[in-house]
Amino acid sequence: MSQKNEKIEKHISSWSVPQSVGEEEAWERLMKAKSQNQPVRKLNQEWVGQLAAGIAALVMIVFALSETKIFAPGEINHSQITQTVWLPDSSLVQLKAYSSVKYNYQRIGGARLIHLKGEALFKVKEGKRFEVQFPGGNLEVLGTQFTIQAYSEESGRVDCFGGSVKVSLHSQFFTLEKGQAVTFDQTTIDGPFNINPEQKLNLPDNVYHWDNRPLKEILSLICQRENYTLEAPDHILQKNFTGPLQLDKPEKAIGILARAMNFDYQLKTNKQLIIEEK
């Protein structure tokens, strides 16, 4: 066996699959899931038909009621200044520039269902199920603080700052823990990767900080906020940027990026942003 093969074999034998939860916690979760299963009981066949019909009717009534939702009026933020919205359950939504949120809860079960388009920071009060639907995916809250950037299905990002959230993107599920984020576009998912939650939470309004993230992510966010269309070569979009940017002055932000990452750009009157090689 060559030296290279030996090196490969030795290296692979040092690997192990990382732990997400310990085996004991996995066992406890399994026990909890097992205990929620209803035991199967043998029924007197005479009653089976009547009982089945009764159950079916009951299920239909419950289903119809559970689909009934109580709607609260939606909020739309047309400005660049973040708007604070208190939901009826005392959860807080900081609605960022050009974003909208709608809130409703189910009559039965009390699940809280949110529709977001744009960007918002959520601080969720503990209680019934809290689910957010946004362009490109949805998430279920298992904890307290997180942001979603999803102005359209083209691209977006979810950051978790406290507790955890279960995100569904392209039929895949991710559990984001505190200090993790995931980005997505129409075909790919990047992450979960680590972030600094304290740094991100303490940024002033409209200031964003990226840590070694592709220009595609940053320029897509600027373009979605400002309704620009983006035209750029892939090799420039794949370059990574680290640093802060203030997005309430988008042209200035693009100018800073152009100088830092060494590209030229044109912003046409029809809101088309063209990025070119210098």
């Binding site: 699959v17 997400s20 996995a26 399994l30 899931a33």
Partner: peptide
């Protein structure tokens, strides 16, 4: 769990599928 991770590279999916498999076994 390792087997599902080798196939998917996704820890959370490996946890979920393993739980589903064991529940079915129960």
């Amino acid at each position: 769990r390792n087997f599902i991770y080798y196939l998917s590279g996704d820890l959370s999916l490996a946890d979920d599928v393993t739980q589903d498999v064991l529940l079915l076994a129960w």
